[in-house]
Design a protein around this nucleic acid. Structure first.
Lengths: 345, 345
DNA sequence: TTGTACGCGTTATCAT
DNA sequence: ATGATAACGCGTACAA
């Protein structure tokens, strides 16, 4: 690739050694080099449009200035935004960022990790799928700097950046009961990823607190593969029966999309008949006729911290900062109590 | 990085030369190698958990098995989906994909291109910003395989994959007039990127055809930086005055989001008072109370073709396939004529 | 200022 | 048949 304008070529043309060219082009030993030859070398380099072969450089210096990032699915707006922030943040520290999507698939994840490691990335920012402990552990044994993103494993001592999902769920449910909802349901994932457990447990704790007794029928668990009909079925179940939910917390933006679409086609009125809250913001939430109250993850902060933590971990692998950020409940129309209260009068 | 398990280490442990280890691990000269020593080498390699240093390999073979992709903004759902498809498609051919966002900024774009080229990617898939001709040309002079994505430059002979934006706009406007709309407006970008020109020109041609005379006030151009208040202002202008638009074509999903949000907060009824069509699908369009008719780009096909074209161009740089794909108008509720017709009766 | 070893894997050539 | 040697790709950095 390229036309092969190497140091050697420049050296030949200038009648000097390749080493000297390297020094000049990198501004090293600048005081010990004849300024005239330096000028000549620079001129030739520019004329030949030289640019360094980062491959060779990395091989020698053992540094690629590259960060590897693995998210669940880069086509998810949430991931896409986060990735973008990391990209910018990394660049500010001189790093190029390489991405991959794991699809929450352990095999795919491991393969991606391998690819990145073999390409000698300087560090990794990872959203590992369930069961990835051994893979992470091996990376640590190889002394590869890494930060877990959005999730972590209690059994491992790693750097991580997460949000307090438990508190976020808890606050959301509290908001719903405080605004007069009595049968708060939740549709979320049946997965053993800790951050998803937290969302579920925060919900359960809040329901328990506000209702004394828990109606298990109001918690619906669906597979992480986001099967549309399964999710729609869960919603229908929540809305039927003897005690239909009058409020629902959606465990992700994918779940929310599917459910809101169905709600749209039913004759339910939000927020009058049903209040809804969604985990994670996406643009679509503003387009629902009743703008959706949502749990806002501090994306900028997450991306910033992820890169900063990685930089620290790259300096010293035993340095494993654990950052827990708080999410914010953004109240919009979809949980407005007024409609409901009016009807009660 | 790594623990430094190199061929050399394995060779030492096995009491053979590094070259032999390389042959064994790559299944080369397999017939000329003692099977017992081969087994021993494989065993040691596995025991030491060896994996090849792709940096060194690439340096030697001059092949990185990497494709570089530059889009405008990876956090845009449209780009994110496309990127995901390219990622999968590339993987099927054994390529890792590296992404970057240019923000439609020429300087950023050039910097990204440089980074990728210096890292010796095997080829590039690019959505170049306006004015990038010289950069592309230089890449071609360096014999670097590339495919333009979603846009192209008539002055350059490159491979490209685009959709027929002119026809897409044309069809959209036709659909609107066929369903009884008389004052079809458009809000799109004031940019000299050809694909955006095409969108505009397709609109103009269709309006001209259906109306005989053109009312320039129904075409609003906004900056590509997606300034919210500018776009909102454009919409308000379209909806006011002596001949307010009764249908609008939005030139992108960003424009659509901003406008639909505003329409939501006004007391306009879609499709009764106003019909809308949007370029590019995103999930949000289904969540609008009146699901939005949109111009669907064949993302899968675009991604597939982009990778295929690149592979061809990598085989022979003078091979520059030009693929023009047709978009599809997906008619939903937002352009339904019934509401309007009922009112007319 | 320059020669040269080095990082690491590949492969053509040479030696048993 | 089996296996070793050495040059190579390209930039870096130390010794000369």
């Amino acid at each position: 690739m390229g036309k092969g304008v190497s140091l050697k070529v420049i050296a030949a043309k200038a009648g000097v050694s390749a080493a000297l060219v390297s020094y000049v082009l990198n501004n090293k030993k600048t005081d010990r080099i004849n300024k005239i030859t330096a000028q000549k070398i620079l001129a030739i380099a520019k004329e030949l449009n030289y640019s360094t072969n980062e491959l060779a450089k990395s091989l020698k210096t053992n540094k690629t200035n590259t960060i590897g990032v693995i998210v669940a699915d880069i086509s998810n707006p949430f991931s896409a935004s986060l990735v973008r922030i990391i990209e910018n943040q990394g660049e500010q520290s001189g790093y190029t960022t390489v991405f991959g999507s794991s699809d929450e698939d352990l095999v795919k994840f491991e393969k991606l990790v391998h690819t990145l490691v073999n390409r000698k990335v300087d560090g990794l920012i990872l959203s590992p799928p369930a069961g990835a402990e051994k893979i992470i552990l091996r990376l640590q044994q190889q002394d590869i700097p890494l930060v877990l993103l959005d999730r972590y494993f209690p059994s491992l001592k790693t750097a991580y950046v997460i949000i307090d999902n438990y508190a976020a769920s808890f606050e959301a449910v509290n908001h719903l009961s405080a605004t007069g909802r009595n049968r708060v349901g939740m549709i979320t994932y049946d997965a053993d990823l800790l951050h998803l457990q937290d969302r579920k447990n925060g919900y359960l704790a809040a329901v328990k607190k506000t209702k004394k007794r828990l109606d298990n029928n109001h918690l619906k668990l669906v597979g992480i593969e986001n099967n549309v009909s399964k999710i729609e079925e869960a919603l229908k179940e929540l809305l039927s029966g003897k005690a239909p939910a009058d409020a629902i917390l959606f465990g992700s933006n994918k779940i929310a999309l599917i459910c809101l679409r169905l709600i749209n086609s039913l004759s339910l009125i939000v927020p009058d008949d049903l209040a809804v809250i969604c985990f994670d913001y996406t643009e679509m939430l503003d387009l629902f006729y009743s703008p959706v109250t949502y749990i806002k993850q501090p994306l900028e902060a997450i991306g910033y911290q992820a890169v900063q933590c990685l930089l620290q971990n790259m300096g010293d692998t035993t340095n494993t900062p654990a950052i827990v950020l708080q999410a914010e409940l953004v109240v919009q129309e979809s949980t407005n109590a007024s409609g409901k209260l009016l009807r009660k009068k």
